[in-house]
């Protein structure tokens, strides 16, 4: 144990750099994991609310199958029949019809502070079926089978609006993982260099140890502990940083500025990530230190 202390003191600057590099790389790892779970949470939250809308023609629309003629009751019944048919019914959780007045009420609520709201009359707004799917990823079946129907202006999967947001978040988390990977490589190389230096400065002792028959484990252990201690300090700092990010940035800043109903990750997620980071740090350090020292153990 005292040897570990001397080893750590002897190359302080290397040990500090090991601590910093593991700290930063594991913080990135933690951020990437948290970003992924944030994406997961948002997907779960929004996809539950995302519906497929089957918009019917209005007298003022010529999009899709519409020809400036209001959809007839027959056409609407045909769509409803299709929704309850054996092909589509298994996919559908529930659906409801929204007429002009309901659509107008919802429109006025959503755009109450918008000037246009005053010019819009109920006739402008599409009547629609709002469909909740059991599995939101299977919206294509619904879109394909209903798009061609007479009197249907458009079948729109709301989830499509969200995809670019998730794509952006995903790209961010992949970037974080990439940076984390590079930093971890740097950390591993630094740890093994530090251990080699430490072993080199003690090569006389090591030579004598091998000569008098000290076991490999006896020789190895102080060096591995040395690497693990340095990495452990770095990973504990990283775990602390991740907890602080969630507490002060996500919950404190984002939570108070973005007053939507979006679900943010909580301290529970961060507390789950912390031990993962410490585990990665310790395992990587132990592995790279034992590889580095094995050169001095060859008999």
């Amino acid at each position: 144990m005292s040897e570990v202390g001397t080893g750590l003191r002897r190359n302080v600057s290397m040990v500090i750099s090991v601590i910093l590099v593991t700290f930063i790389s594991l913080t990135f790892v933690g951020a990437a994991i948290l970003l992924q779970s944030q994406i997961g949470q948002m997907k779960g939250y929004w996809y539950d609310r995302a519906q497929v809308a089957v918009y019917f023609c209005t007298a003022s629309s010529d999009i899709g199958n519409c020809d400036l003629v209001e959809a007839t009751q027959e056409q609407k019944d045909l769509v409803e029949a299709q929704l309850t048919s054996t092909t589509l019914a298994p996919l559908i959780d529930r659906f409801e019809f929204e007429d002009h007045d309901q659509a107008f009420a919802r429109y006025q609520e959503q755009f109450s502070d918008n000037e246009f709201a005053d010019f819009v009359t109920p006739d402008f707004l599409n009547e629609a079926y709002w469909v909740n799917l059991k599995d939101p990823t299977q919206s294509d079946a619904l879109v394909e089978s209903l798009t061609g129907f007479a009197g249907v202006e458009e079948v729109k999967d709301q989830r499509k609006y969200l995809d670019p947001i998730f794509a952006a978040l995903n790209a961010a988390s992949i970037t974080a993982i990439g940076i984390a990977g590079l930093m971890l490589v740097a950390a591993v190389l630094l740890i093994s260099t530090t251990i080699r230096l430490s072993a080199f400065s003690r090569r006389k002792e090591l030579g004598i140890m091998r000569l008098v028959g000290a076991s490999n484990r006896f020789i190895q252990t102080p060096f591995i502990i040395e690497g693990v201690i340095a990495a452990l300090i770095g990973s504990v700092l990283a775990a602390g940083a991740v907890l602080a990010i969630v507490k002060f940035f996500v919950q404190g800043y984002l939570g108070s500025t973005i007053q939507t109903t979006t679900a943010f990750i909580g301290m529970g997620d961060a507390l789950l990530v912390a031990p993962i980071l410490i585990g990665i740090g310790v395992v990587l350090a132990a592995a790279s230190a034992s590889v580095a020292i094995s050169r001095y153990l060859k008999v």
């Binding site: 002792e205 091998r210 000569l211 008098v212």
Partner: peptide
């Protein structure tokens, strides 16, 4: 091999003592 070497003693021309350890500590080290 380490266990095997415990049955052998080795002495060199250049002594190979640990300079920062006393005589007692050098012998005790092994």
């Amino acid at each position: 091999v380490p266990l095997f070497r415990r049955n052998l003693g080795v002495v060199f021309q250049d002594f190979r003592l640990l300079p920062q350890k006393t005589v007692f500590a050098n012998v005790a080290f092994s």
